[in-house]
């Protein structure tokens, strides 16, 4: 089963390789990984999408927690959360296909950010499922290139406060 895991880490050099090394060294799977600073520059947040049964995901979260530079680990999978990714797609728009593609873009609330003679670059944000659906409908037109950020996630507010309070160290 797919799990979205959030990891708050100390923003120190080498932390990313500690985490990616943990995944490769123990044979855990990484589907996507994103990382950036939070509002506190001393802390970064990673979002990792991984595959595994309950026992493996339990090991992943425990092993992540064991790393000295990891402050907090959140498995979003079983909580009420939102998740979004950003994707750029270069798609073929030759001849009569151009208008059809533009229609589809509207339906998915995506945006054209570059239009050339033979192809267009489209920007879309959304859940993992929406991004995959978008690629499916574009496929017949000829996808030339895809670049995606991977998923970022956040829990919804519950009873007036965030469920996982992010606390600066």
């Amino acid at each position: 089963m797919k799990h979205v895991i959030g990891v708050l880490v100390e923003n120190e050099f080498g932390v990313l390789s500690r985490i990616s090394g943990l995944f490769s060294g123990r044979g855990f799977n990484i589907e996507s990984l994103t990382v950036a600073e939070t509002d506190d520059p001393a802390i970064s947040r990673m979002t990792i999408v991984t595959l595994g049964d309950d026992q493996i995901v339990e090991q992943i979260t425990k092993q992540l927690n064991k790393l000295i530079n990891v402050i907090k680990v959140i498995d979003f999978t079983n909580s009420d959360h939102v998740s979004r990714g950003l994707m750029l797609v270069k798609v073929s728009v030759e001849g009569s296909k151009r208008l059809e593609v533009l229609k589809l873009i509207e339906v998915f609330r995506a945006r054209v950010i570059d239009m050339a003679a033979k192809s267009a670059i489209i920007e879309i944000t959304g859940s993992d499922m929406k991004l995959r659906a978008f690629l499916d409908v574009l496929a017949p037109y000829g996808i030339k290139e895809v670049n995606s950020t991977g998923i970022v996630a956040m829990n919804r507010e519950v009873k007036g406060r965030s469920r996982h309070k992010i606390k600066a160290a």
Partner: peptide, 14 residues
């Protein structure tokens, strides 16, 4: 050596 020993130390520092 920090890179080399990352998986065989509890923690390491440069």
């Amino acid at each position: 050596i920090v890179g080399i020993t990352r998986p065989c130390t509890k923690h390491n520092y440069l």
